[in-house]
Amino acid sequence: MSDKKKTTIVLFSGDYDKAMAAYIIANGAAAYDHEVTIFHTFWGLNALRKEEQVPVQKGFLEKMFAKMMPRGADKMGLSKMNFAGMGPKMIKKVMKKHQAMPFPQLAEMAQEQDVKLIACTMTMDLLGLKKDELIEDIDYAGVAAYIGDAEEGNINLFI
Protein backbone atom coordinates (compact mmCIF):
# COMPACT_ATOMS: atom_id res chain seq x y z
CA MET A 1 0.00 0.00 0.00
CA SER A 2 1.26 3.45 -0.80
CA ASP A 3 1.89 6.00 1.90
CA LYS A 4 0.33 8.75 -0.16
CA LYS A 5 -2.53 10.68 1.35
CA LYS A 6 -5.93 10.24 -0.23
CA THR A 7 -8.71 12.56 -1.23
CA THR A 8 -12.05 11.14 -2.28
CA ILE A 9 -14.89 13.18 -3.68
CA VAL A 10 -18.44 12.10 -4.46
CA LEU A 11 -19.82 14.18 -7.29
CA PHE A 12 -23.58 13.75 -7.06
CA SER A 13 -24.64 17.08 -8.52
CA GLY A 14 -25.11 17.86 -12.18
CA ASP A 15 -24.53 21.60 -11.96
CA TYR A 16 -21.68 23.31 -13.77
CA ASP A 17 -20.55 25.28 -10.72
CA LYS A 18 -20.57 22.28 -8.41
CA ALA A 19 -18.76 20.08 -10.90
CA MET A 20 -16.20 22.83 -11.30
CA ALA A 21 -15.69 23.06 -7.54
CA ALA A 22 -15.22 19.29 -7.33
CA TYR A 23 -12.63 19.27 -10.10
CA ILE A 24 -10.76 22.28 -8.68
CA ILE A 25 -10.47 20.54 -5.32
CA ALA A 26 -9.41 17.34 -7.07
CA ASN A 27 -6.67 19.15 -8.99
CA GLY A 28 -5.54 20.94 -5.83
CA ALA A 29 -5.35 17.67 -3.92
CA ALA A 30 -3.41 16.07 -6.77
CA ALA A 31 -0.95 18.96 -6.55
CA TYR A 32 -0.57 17.98 -2.89
CA ASP A 33 0.46 14.56 -4.14
CA HIS A 34 -2.70 12.93 -2.91
CA GLU A 35 -4.23 9.95 -4.61
CA VAL A 36 -7.49 11.47 -5.75
CA THR A 37 -10.73 9.73 -6.62
CA ILE A 38 -13.88 11.36 -7.94
CA PHE A 39 -16.85 9.04 -7.68
CA HIS A 40 -19.56 10.19 -10.10
CA THR A 41 -23.08 9.18 -9.25
CA PHE A 42 -26.58 10.29 -10.27
CA TRP A 43 -26.42 13.68 -12.04
CA GLY A 44 -22.68 13.86 -11.56
CA LEU A 45 -22.38 11.11 -14.17
CA ASN A 46 -23.21 13.67 -16.82
CA ALA A 47 -19.79 15.22 -16.25
CA LEU A 48 -18.36 12.05 -17.81
CA ARG A 49 -20.59 12.04 -20.90
CA LYS A 50 -19.09 12.47 -24.32
CA GLU A 51 -20.13 15.60 -26.16
CA GLU A 52 -21.25 13.77 -29.26
CA GLN A 53 -24.26 11.55 -29.51
CA VAL A 54 -23.35 7.87 -29.37
CA PRO A 55 -25.72 5.36 -30.94
CA VAL A 56 -26.69 2.82 -28.28
CA GLN A 57 -29.69 0.59 -27.70
CA LYS A 58 -32.11 2.23 -25.28
CA GLY A 59 -35.68 1.98 -24.08
CA PHE A 60 -38.13 4.86 -24.27
CA LEU A 61 -37.50 6.25 -20.76
CA GLU A 62 -33.76 5.92 -21.17
CA LYS A 63 -33.94 7.81 -24.44
CA MET A 64 -35.88 10.59 -22.72
CA PHE A 65 -33.30 10.77 -19.96
CA ALA A 66 -30.48 10.88 -22.48
CA LYS A 67 -32.14 13.76 -24.29
CA MET A 68 -32.84 15.80 -21.19
CA MET A 69 -29.49 15.41 -19.51
CA PRO A 70 -26.44 17.45 -20.51
CA ARG A 71 -23.72 15.78 -22.54
CA GLY A 72 -20.67 16.71 -20.51
CA ALA A 73 -20.20 19.24 -17.71
CA ASP A 74 -19.69 22.06 -20.17
CA LYS A 75 -23.37 21.80 -21.09
CA MET A 76 -24.60 21.84 -17.49
CA GLY A 77 -26.61 24.63 -15.92
CA LEU A 78 -25.76 26.58 -12.80
CA SER A 79 -27.08 25.64 -9.36
CA LYS A 80 -28.03 29.29 -8.82
CA MET A 81 -28.90 32.04 -11.29
CA ASN A 82 -29.18 29.71 -14.25
CA PHE A 83 -31.61 32.10 -15.98
CA ALA A 84 -32.75 29.43 -18.45
CA GLY A 85 -29.25 28.93 -19.76
CA MET A 86 -28.02 32.52 -19.74
CA GLY A 87 -26.26 31.99 -16.40
CA PRO A 88 -23.65 29.55 -17.70
CA LYS A 89 -22.89 31.86 -20.63
CA MET A 90 -22.36 34.76 -18.25
CA ILE A 91 -20.20 32.85 -15.82
CA LYS A 92 -18.02 31.49 -18.63
CA LYS A 93 -17.46 35.05 -19.79
CA VAL A 94 -16.47 36.15 -16.30
CA MET A 95 -14.23 33.10 -15.92
CA LYS A 96 -12.43 34.01 -19.11
CA LYS A 97 -11.86 37.52 -17.82
CA HIS A 98 -10.34 36.18 -14.60
CA GLN A 99 -8.46 33.42 -16.42
CA ALA A 100 -10.20 30.74 -14.41
CA MET A 101 -9.97 27.30 -16.00
CA PRO A 102 -13.12 26.23 -17.81
CA PHE A 103 -14.43 22.77 -16.99
CA PRO A 104 -13.06 20.89 -20.02
CA GLN A 105 -9.51 21.98 -19.17
CA LEU A 106 -10.02 21.18 -15.49
CA ALA A 107 -11.10 17.66 -16.45
CA GLU A 108 -8.15 17.29 -18.80
CA MET A 109 -5.76 18.45 -16.10
CA ALA A 110 -7.33 16.06 -13.60
CA GLN A 111 -6.69 13.12 -15.92
CA GLU A 112 -3.17 14.38 -16.57
CA GLN A 113 -2.60 14.40 -12.81
CA ASP A 114 -3.87 10.82 -12.55
CA VAL A 115 -7.06 11.67 -10.74
CA LYS A 116 -9.12 8.47 -10.73
CA LEU A 117 -12.52 9.07 -12.28
CA ILE A 118 -15.13 6.51 -11.35
CA ALA A 119 -18.63 6.10 -12.77
CA CYS A 120 -21.19 4.50 -10.47
CA THR A 121 -22.62 1.57 -12.41
CA MET A 122 -25.87 1.33 -10.46
CA THR A 123 -26.88 4.92 -11.26
CA MET A 124 -25.66 4.48 -14.83
CA ASP A 125 -28.36 1.82 -15.12
CA LEU A 126 -30.97 4.10 -13.54
CA LEU A 127 -30.22 6.95 -15.91
CA GLY A 128 -29.76 4.59 -18.84
CA LEU A 129 -26.18 5.64 -19.51
CA LYS A 130 -23.93 3.16 -21.35
CA LYS A 131 -20.17 2.87 -21.20
CA ASP A 132 -19.90 3.93 -24.85
CA GLU A 133 -21.48 7.26 -23.95
CA LEU A 134 -18.88 8.07 -21.31
CA ILE A 135 -15.35 9.36 -21.86
CA GLU A 136 -12.34 7.01 -22.06
CA ASP A 137 -9.95 6.08 -19.26
CA ILE A 138 -12.42 5.96 -16.42
CA ASP A 139 -13.23 3.21 -13.94
CA TYR A 140 -16.57 1.59 -13.26
CA ALA A 141 -17.48 0.65 -9.73
CA GLY A 142 -19.97 0.67 -6.92
CA VAL A 143 -20.17 1.83 -3.36
CA ALA A 144 -17.74 -0.76 -2.02
CA ALA A 145 -14.91 0.39 -4.24
CA TYR A 146 -15.59 3.94 -3.20
CA ILE A 147 -15.59 3.04 0.50
CA GLY A 148 -12.40 1.09 -0.06
CA ASP A 149 -10.73 4.28 -1.26
CA ALA A 150 -12.47 6.55 1.22
CA GLU A 151 -11.76 4.54 4.37
CA GLU A 152 -8.09 5.29 3.97
CA GLY A 153 -8.89 8.81 2.95
CA ASN A 154 -7.79 12.04 4.54
CA ILE A 155 -10.30 14.27 2.78
CA ASN A 156 -13.76 13.12 1.81
CA LEU A 157 -16.37 15.35 0.20
CA PHE A 158 -19.90 14.99 -1.10
CA ILE A 159 -20.73 17.58 -3.71
Binding site: I24, N27, G28, A30, A31, D33, M101
Partner: peptide
Amino acid sequence: KGLACPMPIVKTK
Protein backbone atom coordinates in the same frame (compact mmCIF):
# COMPACT_ATOMS: atom_id res chain seq x y z
CA LYS B 1 0.76 35.75 -13.29
CA GLY B 2 -2.88 36.17 -14.25
CA LEU B 3 -3.75 32.54 -13.64
CA ALA B 4 -6.50 31.68 -11.18
CA CYS B 5 -6.89 28.91 -8.62
CA PRO B 6 -5.97 26.03 -8.86
CA MET B 7 -3.41 26.70 -11.60
CA PRO B 8 -0.64 28.38 -9.55
CA ILE B 9 -0.40 25.39 -7.24
CA VAL B 10 -0.75 22.79 -10.01
CA LYS B 11 1.99 24.44 -12.07
CA THR B 12 4.22 24.91 -9.02
CA LYS B 13 3.96 21.22 -8.29
